[in-house]
């Protein structure tokens, strides 16, 4: 499931964004060895202060497992201000209809444990890309320039999502190299990505479902405090879910109700004291 955050809704999702900063630390500092600034376990830089859009992927258990950051190329962005080395000293692109994608990553450790299917590396990579391209298309964007590493580049080529070109040349960056890939933000590319990953549903998930999944992951509480009939009902709903989407929705419902009851319990004990 995917949530898109920007300056208008991020106040409601600071905890999810916080998890994303931690994921970025694990990927860009720990795994790729990029020279990034990490504060209290969170990787964020000056460009995060420019109100970017984040495309954030969560797995079915409500953990942040993938992300991407989007900025306009008409204003300050990484290729113009930080990664100009990649462009061999050439000025960057600037266009109303080109966005820059940076800090694109997935949680390979967690996803490798999950193995194949809905929580695999290639599924989440495709999910993030589909969301970014569809979101871009709705905003009138025609192309994206993405700063990526060769591993991500290979994953994309193998997922029906090969860049149509590159700007400048790949440059060493920490343990790996970084490159600037060009991708058309087109219906055809989205179709190829969807065919490859067999993702047919709307990847942008309603905010309340994402929030419920995220919050239930933070509170892996049992549902013991619920009245027995209600608990049985919720467990049956989860067991009877026909598809992964239904299961997510059933778990989200259980989490919401469990949280509601926990709050009421808290209030009751308060009124006793």
């Amino acid at each position: 499931m995917i949530i898109v955050t920007d300056a208008l809704n991020r106040d409601r999702h600071t905890d999810i964004i916080d998890e994303m900063y931690r994921l970025r630390t694990r990927v860009f500092q720990d795994r790729l060895g990029w020279d990034v600034k990490v504060t209290d376990g969170r990787e964020f830089d000056a460009f995060d202060a420019l109100d970017p859009v984040y495309i954030i992927a969560l797995d079915d258990d409500g953990h942040v497992v993938g992300c991407m950051r989007l900025l306009q190329t008409t204003g300050p962005h990484m290729l113009s201000d930080v990664f100009h080395e990649i462009l061999d000293g050439e000025p960057p692109l600037r266009s109303a209809q080109v966005w820059e994608a940076t800090r694109f990553c997935v949680d390979t450790e967690r996803l490798a444990r999950a193995g194949r299917a809905r929580n695999s590396i290639s599924y989440v990579t495709s999910e993030v890309m589909i969301a970014a391209f569809e979101y871009g298309r709705a905003s009138g964007i025609l192309d994206a320039v993405a700063v990526i590493d060769p591993v991500m580049n290979r994953v994309m080529i193998r997922s029906g999502n090969a860049p149509y070109d590159y700007l400048g040349t790949a440059k060493p960056m920490g343990k790996v190299t970084a490159m600037a890939a060009l991708m058309d933000c087109s219906e055809e590319r989205v179709a190829r990505l969807r065919d490859f990953s067999d993702i047919r549903h709307d990847v942008l998930t309603p905010e309340n479902i994402v929030r419920a999944a995220f919050e239930s992951a933070r509170k892996p509480t049992t549902h013991d405090h619920l009245p027995e009939a209600l608990r049985t009902y919720l467990e049956e709903q989860i067991a009877a879910a026909g598809s992964a989407d239904e299961q997510t929705a059933a778990k989200a419902l259980a989490a919401t109700i469990a949280a509601r009851y926990a709050k009421e319990d808290g209030q009751k004990s308060q009124s006793v004291h």
Binding site: T73, T74, L93, R94, S95, Q97, V98, Y164, D165, L182
Partner: peptide, 17 residues
């Protein structure tokens, strides 16, 4: 020896600048 899409993306950028 580049794709017409690459030509187009540079043209758009050039127009904007």
């Amino acid at each position: 020896s580049i794709s017409h899409r690459t030509v187009e993306v540079h043209l758009r950028s050039g127009r904007s600048k």
